[in-house]
Design a protein around this nucleic acid. Structure first.
Lengths: 126, 126
DNA sequence: CCGGATCCTTGCCGATACTG
DNA sequence: CAGTATCGGCAAGGATCCGG
């Protein structure tokens, strides 16, 4: 798993590399905005401003920052139409869709357990 | 979905409440450490210090903070054995296990796409 | 319309020290 | 051993301006 222990032997070298990379990706993606962007895109193709409108509460800066990150990891594809005014569109790649399935799972999970979580919170907050 | 738009009509009131709560939960758990804790626990029962050892790089403070958060949301159960020295054990609840399935999915996803992501990064970083 | 750059505020997080 | 409290550095994130 991502928290594997290594002995330091030479043949573990690439495993350690893969592991630290996995950690890095994990840190990138386990983030509120990334999930919301993926979820909002779905199988549509949206412009920057459309994403900004649909994702309530995200700032200009956070949107660009996360889109860059997702683009860098190959999860979204960014296409620039050289018109004036410029038109930039974002869509999910295949790995992106894979992650979307997981994000969907999280949403389902949230909705099925919403009630239980709410009561758990109330019990705790006393 | 979590980014639904509301008209402000009275019958939307509870939906809005549910939505904002969902957002809150989402913000809580879409976090690197929460995922790693869930994933590390699995179906075992671990002590604080054991978790600390297994989750590489987590600080004392972050571990307690996230365990409190997970406990508050009813995802982990905390049992204190009133011995000396004290012994505190953590285990996943049913909702916690649901989330664990999702975390597992994320790990699988990471490993299947690790190569593609790495090359995507190299292309981007030029 | 997009996104980079800058400034500035906020809160995260680590280190440390102290209780039960 | 487990948890809380405090403090301080630093990075995340919002607001704004400018440039393509």
């Amino acid at each position: 798993m991502v928290t594997k222990q290594f002995s330091g032997s030479p043949e573990d070298a690439d495993l350690m590399r893969a592991d630290s990379l996995a950690r890095e990706i994990f840190s990138d993606i386990a983030n509120k905005w990334a999930f919301l962007i993926i979820e909002t895109l779905g199988d549509r193709t949206l412009r920057f401003s459309e994403l900004r409108k649909e994702i309530e509460g995200i700032s200009h800066k956070m949107l660009t920052q996360n889109l860059r990150m997702l683009e860098r990891n190959g999860l979204v594809e960014r296409t620039v139409h050289p018109t004036v005014p410029p038109r930039v569109e974002y869509t999910l790649t295949e790995p992106g869709h894979g992650l979307r399935t997981i994000a969907d799972g999280m949403c389902d999970w949230t909705h099925t357990y919403l009630g239980r979580i709410e009561t758990a919170r109330r019990r705790f907050d006393t």
